[in-house]
């Protein structure tokens, strides 16, 4: 049974999700029979201790990795029926990401980093939209700066601008404040939720920050690869 809602109209749906990898001591199950349903516009936090399988679950939900067993559907599209390029195209249309380590391309400026997903989608107005997105996160004056010239908080703002610039219905955030000090982390979390609300996106957030998780509509706790509650 899904923790949370089930049925049609779900933004994200996972059932029987299992991931097993080979290890020197035999097969190792990282994630076992996870079921999850997320409604459109809902914010869900996935929490759990280190090694609980949070990042693995996020990777499977976003189609960055393939499950050993089980299925994932984004906006009704079964990821298992798509090849790698098909999953990439779906992410390009439907999904945005914010990572713990920002994942900005060091050789691109802030503006170029934000333009990247638009360009990949063939948007002719990439520059205008990216400039607007950076202005919205308060970096209108730092368009031409390279990541190394920005502070950690600023880099994460660029990442948030990039995540929302394509207006994705679904957003994944992996420990978005994990690399930031407390005050900066809080400001970034604030910005993330504001932007998410403004865009009306569904947010799936992986964190072990209880305070951050508490801002979500629902918390899914993982322990040893299983949904604990």
């Amino acid at each position: 049974m899904y923790p949370g809602p089930s049925g049609a109209g779900l933004a994200l749906e996972a059932s029987g999700l299992t991931k097993t990898v080979d290890s020197p001591s035999g097969p190792l199950t990282i994630l076992a029979d996870v079921d999850l349903g997320v409604r459109a516009g809902e914010t869900v936090a996935i929490v759990g201790p280190s090694g609980a399988g949070k990042s693995t679950l996020l990777a499977l939900l976003a189609g960055l990795d393939t499950p050993t067993r089980g299925r994932v559907a984004i906006a009704g599209t079964d990821l298992g029926r798509l090849d790698e390029d098909g999953r990439a195209a779906l992410r390009g249309r439907q999904v945005g990401f914010v990572f713990q380590s920002f994942q900005l391309i060091p050789s691109l400026t802030a503006l170029e980093n934000v333009m990247l997903p638009l360009e990949l989608a063939g948007d002719p107005n990439a520059r205008v939209a990216a400039t607007a997105a950076l202005t919205e996160v308060g970096l209108g004056a730092r368009l031409a700066h390279y990541p190394r010239q920005l502070s950690g908080g600023e880099q994460q703002r660029v990442a948030i601008a990039r995540a929302f610039v394509t207006r994705p219905p679904l957003l994944f955030a992996d420990e978005p404040t994990g690399n930031l000090d407390g005050a900066t982390g809080r400001r970034i979390a604030q910005l993330l939720f504001e932007r998410n609300r403004a865009a009306g996106s569904t947010l799936v957030l992986v964190t072990h920050d209880r305070e951050l998780a508490a801002r979500c509509d629902r918390i899914v706790a993982l322990d040893a690869g299983r949904v604990a509650g």
């Binding site: 960055l64 992410r91 390009g92 249309r93 391309i105 990247l116 997903p117 990949l120």
Partner: peptide, 16 residues
């Protein structure tokens, strides 16, 4: 490699 992984994450195909 890192840039390619990110681009694929953001929707780039293998051909691209």
């Amino acid at each position: 490699i890192d840039g390619v992984a990110l681009m694929k994450c953001l929707g780039a195909t293998q051909r691209f």
